[in-house]
Lab assay of single mutants.
Amino acid sequence: MDALKSAGRALIRSPSLAKQSWGGGGRHRKLPENWTDTRETLLEGMLFSLKYLGMTLVEQPKGEELSAAAIKRIVATAKASGKKLQKVTLKVSPRGIILTDNLTNQLIENVSIYRISYCTADKMHDKVFAYIAQSQHNQSLECHAFLCTKRKMAQAVTLTVAQAFKVAFEFWQVSKEEKEKRDKASQEGGDVLGARQDCTPPLKSLVATGNLLDLEETAKAPLSTVSANTTNMDEVPRPQALSGSSVVWELDDGLDEAFSRLAQSRTNPQVLDTGLTAQDMHYAQCLSPVDWDKPDSSGTEQDDLFSF
């Protein structure tokens, strides 16, 4: 819950932080000083300027060897085509990944977070970031790969997607708890209302004896509580940590079903599988986004697919 609360507080303090972009060759504004600060901008989305290598189908939802083989196929196909790589912007948030063309600003792909089953910074092609997700059109699994400016960037994108998945799962947990509370309150309110109706004398007997209905007592009954809980029953509950912020979080049926399955089948359902080692994760978390744009010590960066 700490990640969720800190993310909400950060967004309320400075929503404009989320509009910064990394990996864009110096076009961005001043960047936060450390990885923790940038992680807090996830709610509205972190932007990464990358190059799209392509996509291939895979048979399993996750796995280092599986993704490595898929990336190898994608890279080989991209090299064989001889075409310049498409420059894209990857927007990562707890909602998922939005992929747009840098030149036309046209939407290429919009992947809900619950469809993503794996992401990684490839070991062999260490400047490549990739994720595996279920197609929104059918049940097939797709591996999408992107060329980053350097290994640090690939690791940073991988960690960002993993963190977005974690925050999304926490949102789901909060929403589920809130819905259970509202359902319980609604049920209790309905029981109270039913009890009051059972003990209320029939209207005919009131008229016969000349008694008047006590409207004041009726007004004191917990009807307002019942209506408050039943009027918006169809509205999706939102985490309290975000009250007053500009973010509107809505959970669709697909996300609810997917996270429910994860909660039942996995020990740590909030953790998205990645190909990063503990050492890689520690190294990337210690980086400032400013470091992502620094040239690798191995030599001059080449803006070309064939540089790796």
Results as ranks from 00 to 15, higher is better:
145 A>T: 01
41 T>E: 12
150 K>P: 01
229 N>A: 12
263 A>F: 04
14 S>L: 00
171 F>Q: 06
71 I>P: 00
175 S>I: 04
104 T>S: 13
267 T>I: 15
300 T>N: 10
161 V>P: 00
45 G>A: 08
16 S>P: 09
40 E>W: 02
188 E>G: 05
209 T>W: 04
151 R>I: 01
174 V>N: 04
201 P>N: 07
156 A>K: 07
88 V>I: 02
203 L>W: 09
230 T>R: 06
115 R>F: 03
15 P>C: 01
275 G>M: 04
109 E>L: 14
220 K>M: 04
171 F>S: 15
253 D>H: 09
273 D>M: 08
61 P>M: 12
206 L>T: 14
265 S>G: 07
120 T>E: 01
206 L>G: 10
33 E>L: 14
270 Q>L: 03
256 D>H: 14
288 S>Q: 04
8 G>H: 06
269 P>I: 04
246 S>I: 11
87 K>T: 14
191 D>C: 02
147 L>M: 00
204 K>Y: 05
53 L>A: 00
224 S>R: 03
133 A>K: 04
92 V>E: 00
42 L>N: 12
191 D>R: 09
91 K>A: 11
66 L>R: 06
77 T>W: 02
114 Y>C: 06
217 E>W: 01
248 V>A: 05
174 V>K: 01
217 E>K: 08
13 R>C: 15
75 V>G: 00
7 A>L: 01
47 L>R: 13
259 F>A: 03
224 S>W: 04
286 C>W: 10
64 E>N: 06
192 V>I: 13
194 G>D: 06
168 A>G: 05
40 E>F: 02
19 K>L: 13
117 S>T: 07
101 D>C: 14
229 N>E: 06
268 N>P: 05
125 H>A: 00
56 T>G: 04
67 S>K: 01
300 T>L: 11
162 A>G: 04
152 K>E: 14
11 L>E: 06
302 Q>T: 14
141 L>E: 03
38 T>D: 06
119 C>G: 15
298 S>P: 04
207 V>Y: 02
214 D>C: 07
189 G>T: 04
150 K>Y: 09
251 L>D: 06
289 P>A: 01
223 L>D: 03
96 G>C: 07
120 T>P: 05
288 S>Y: 08
33 E>Y: 15
11 L>I: 09
50 L>F: 03
61 P>H: 02
176 K>L: 05
154 A>M: 00
296 D>V: 06
202 P>Q: 11
173 Q>H: 06
84 K>G: 13
282 H>M: 09
31 L>N: 07
176 K>I: 04
138 N>R: 15
217 E>N: 15
254 G>V: 09
185 A>Y: 13
79 K>Y: 10
170 E>K: 08
262 L>K: 03
18 A>L: 02
158 T>H: 02
242 L>N: 12
171 F>G: 07
202 P>F: 08
126 D>H: 00
7 A>S: 13
48 F>L: 01
290 V>A: 06
219 A>L: 02
280 D>K: 07
90 L>F: 08
62 K>H: 01
268 N>G: 02
47 L>A: 13
28 H>F: 11
139 Q>G: 12
239 P>T: 10
60 Q>G: 11
105 N>W: 03
198 D>L: 06
282 H>W: 07
139 Q>S: 14
25 G>V: 11
291 D>A: 09
56 T>I: 09
170 E>S: 06
91 K>P: 00
293 D>E: 06
126 D>Q: 00
59 E>Y: 04
27 R>C: 10
146 F>I: 00
119 C>E: 01
192 V>F: 06
34 N>F: 03
130 A>T: 01
196 R>K: 11
123 K>M: 13
164 A>M: 01
103 L>P: 06
96 G>E: 08
19 K>T: 10
162 A>Y: 06
239 P>C: 11
58 V>R: 00
20 Q>C: 14
16 S>L: 13
121 A>D: 06
203 L>S: 06
301 E>A: 06
211 N>G: 14
216 E>K: 15
282 H>C: 13
156 A>H: 05
57 L>Y: 10
33 E>N: 13
145 A>D: 00
45 G>N: 08
49 S>K: 02
205 S>L: 06
178 E>I: 12
93 S>W: 12
187 Q>L: 03
299 G>A: 05
143 C>D: 00
297 S>H: 06
175 S>Q: 05
113 I>Q: 07
190 G>I: 08
128 V>G: 00
129 F>V: 15
130 A>S: 13
298 S>A: 09
275 G>S: 05
41 T>V: 12
122 D>C: 00
245 S>N: 11
152 K>Y: 12
171 F>N: 05
272 L>K: 06
131 Y>C: 00
86 Q>E: 05
23 G>W: 14
248 V>P: 11
133 A>C: 11
163 Q>G: 14
289 P>R: 04
105 N>T: 05
147 L>K: 11
244 G>P: 06
72 K>N: 15
111 V>Q: 08
